[in-house]
Design a protein around this nucleic acid. Structure first.
Length: 658
DNA sequence: GGTACCAGCGCCCTCTGCTGGTAGCTG
DNA sequence: ACAGCTACCAGCAGAGGGCGCTGGTACC
């Protein structure tokens, strides 16, 4: 569009170049047209196979010279014709000018209604229909695109009445011109062979208007091209194939007699396929194509075609529900609602049955929705991600994942949720008493949620072909639960035995530490004094004691004898001995020397039961017998008794575990 | 013209099941 | 301290039920 140069403002109108048969002549024509960059009119034998034609190059505003133009095509009549158009910028002044000219030529109000604003150009484009099959047409049909200006995006389906037909607007030479009086051709909807058909029934007929369905969408060239699909809504007599390839219009036919040969008159709607044996029914039906609505709701100003529709609508305002269910307290506005309700709730009649499964539904729409689960069809595409839904509600629900909306709030803790079901589960599990639990049928486990029970069964009770061996013995199990239960029987076993001495323990890592007492390995080094330790905890304790000026050691005093200990559990053990009179060492110092304490610290202030093991060991005495002790304290002790008390392998290692 | 009946669309709901993150327990 | 395991939990989607409402048609 940008590259289009038009000198004459009137040439800026969108034009339809030609009517062509496809696909027979398509290759030649398309090649020709691509060179010209012109728009096209195409006729599709099948309404459902409308395809956009790509138009390359700049807009060509004229119709080729008479002899050079496309040959008139002869095709089977069809109900739809594809028009490929191009939009051209047009200023508002041009629109006004054009409007005047059209009126001067007696063509009724075409241009203003056909204005299609461009989204971001700030200008407007016009559409009109041009005869593509005959270059020298003198007669045209003016069309009125309803009563409003459509955004292009909205022009998906519309009706427009043919206001005038066979209007002479073109010059004799058939050349495309910039204005109707200069030979501009419009789309012609000819009567063709229809003229010799019986005169339509006049009753209820609108001689001034005819309706066509127009489907408009962007062409391959984006907004530079508009593809219109015009549906001829006339109903043909059975077996009566029109000879003309032209899209045709029966100007004054709003209804026709269909079955004259059988002696029984039937009446046909020209707009749709409605047929009736009664004129009155046809007349009433034809009103359905009219936009006329005369019954307005005084409460919301909504307009309805019939009194019945209006009454039903007003009932929704007033709450009037005349149709009451005899089996329950429900009541409805319409009888249909009551019938449906009874099917759902009482009769359980489900007339719509799935052909692929046992599903049956009360409503056809439910079956239609169900069928998507078989076909996989997902018509509702998320505009923000690749998700597509099978129905509108799921898409709407999905959109909350993008918006972050959480419309459901727990009334207890005010937590918010995206789905009502999630909130309901939350309230049940968090804020309800007597929460039901799900008992595992294979073990004693009770699990809050059914879905988690399923996972439990899958993880622990599913049979596995490949057996799972016990970590501690040669037993093999095919259910994980059995394996775990079996391994628990090994729990109290001190299965790790030292190869150098009689030491045994439950955990392998303890044995690793113990083994270092035999190998002499001391992998933990103090970087301040280069002293080495077999355990990381000992290094940490060393760092606190010797290199941390803020460190205050913990002292536990026996409330009975006053003896001080660095570990609470040791003190408690000592206290048991004190109480039982089996005390072997006392604070009075019967040959036992206590570790020199730091200034007394109130017991309440004593903290840090994690003080290092070496802190717990009284000084002076024997060197820690590393060959039997897992703890490398690096200190001396007052006596073997304290040493044994403190250095119980299990005790220390258990403490370290904590 | 009124009305009953039916069809269809839309909306909201529940139930269900899967998934992934996490806290707590255990070794 | 750490890893592994598992129940717990919220998030999310699939499927279907139920109803509100409007529109079309047949019939009286």
């Amino acid at each position: 569009m940008a590259e289009t140069e038009v000198s004459d403002p009137l040439e800026q109108f969108t034009q339809i170049k030609e009517l062509e048969l496809m696909p027979e002549k398509a290759p030649e024509k398309e090649e020709e047209e691509e060179q010209d960059g012109v728009c096209r009119v195409k006729e599709h034998p099948c309404p459902g196979e409308v395809e956009a034609e790509s138009t390359q190059g700049a807009l060509q505003t004229g119709i080729p010279e008479g002899g050079q133009g496309p040959e008139p095509v002869t095709v089977e009549d069809s109900e739809k014709h594809l028009l490929t158009l191009q939009t051209v910028p047009l200023s508002s002044e041009d629109v006004g000018l054009q409007e005047v000219r059209w009126h001067q030529e007696g063509v009724q109000a075409v241009v203003p209604q056909a204005v299609v604003p461009l989204a971001d150009s700030g200008q407007q484009s016009l559409l009109w229909l041009e005869d593509g099959s005959q270059q020298s047409l003198h007669q045209c049909v003016a069309v009125n695109l309803q009563d409003e200006v459509y955004l292009l995006q909205e022009m998906e389906l519309m009706q427009f009445p043919v206001l005038e037909e066979h209007v002479a607007v073109a010059g004799e030479d058939g050349k495309s011109a910039a204005s109707p009086d200069e030979g501009m051709a419009l789309m012609k909807f000819e009567k063709g062979q229809k003229e010799d058909q019986p005169e339509p029934v006049a009753e209820g007929r609108d001689d001034e208007k005819q309706f066509f369905l127009v489907e408009a969408r962007l062409g391959d060239e984006g907004r530079n091209e508009i593809v219109l699909t015009i549906s001829n809504l006339n109903i043909e007599e059975p077996g009566d194939k029109p000879a003309s390839s032209q899209p045709h219009v029966e100007k004054d036919n709003s209804a026709k007699i269909q079955n004259k040969t059988q002696g029984k008159r039937s009446f046909h709607c020209d707009i749709c396929k409605f047929t009736s044996s009664r004129v009155s029914s046809l007349n009433r039906h034809i009103k359905t194509h009219s936009t006329e609505k005369s019954h307005m709701c005084h409460l919301c100003l909504k307009i309805f075609r019939t009194v019945t529709l209006l009454r039903n609508h007003i009932n929704t305002h007033t709450g009037t529900r005349p149709y009451k269910c005899g089996d329950c307290d429900m009541a409805f506005v319409t009888s249909g609602e009551l019938v449906r309700h009874r099917r759902y709730k009482h009769t359980h009649e489900k007339p719509f049955k799935c052909s692929m499964c046992k599903y049956a539904s009360v409503e056809a729409s439910k079956l239609k929705r169900h069928m998507r689960s078989h076909t996989g069809e997902r018509p509702f595409q998320c505009c923000l991600c690749s998700y597509a839904s099978k129905d509108t509600y799921k898409l709407k629900r999905h959109m909350r994942t993008h918006s972050g909306e959480k419309p459901y709030e727990c009334h207890v803790c005010h937590a918010r949720f995206t789905q009502s079901g999630t909130m309901k589960t939350h309230i049940l599990q968090k804020h309800s008493e007597n929460v039901p639990k799900y008992q595992c049928p294979h073990c004693t486990a009770t699990i809050k949620r059914k879905t988690d029970l399923r996972i439990h069964l899958r993880n622990l009770h599913a049979f596995k072909d490949t057996g799972m061996p016990c970590r501690y013995c040669s037993a093999v199990f095919h259910e994980r639960y059995d394996l775990i239960q079996h391994q628990k029987t090994h729990k109290d076993e001190k299965k790790f035995k030292c190869q150098y001495c009689s030491y045994a323990c439950k955990q392998e890592r303890h044995m690793t530490i113990h083994i270092r007492t035999h190998t002499g390995e001391k992998p933990f080094v103090c970087h301040s004094c280069n002293k080495r330790f077999r355990q990381k905890q000992l290094l940490n304790a060393h760092l606190k004691k010797h290199h941390d000026t803020d460190f205050i050691p913990t002292v536990y005093e026996c409330p009975k004898c006053g003896k001080a200990f660095s570990r609470s559990n040791i003190m408690r053990k000592h206290l048991e001995k004190c109480n039982s009179g089996q005390k072997k060492s006392t604070a009075s110092g019967k040959g036992k020397r206590m570790k020199k304490r730091k200034p007394a610290i109130p017991k309440e202030a004593v903290k840090g039961d994690e003080a290092a093991a070496e802190e717990a060991v009284p000084v002076k005495g024997e060197q820690c017998p590393g060959e039997v002790m897992p703890v490398d304290c690096g200190e001396t002790v007052a006596g073997i008794e304290d040493l044994e008390e403190y250095m119980s392998c299990e005790m220390i290692l258990n403490m370290l575990d904590k």
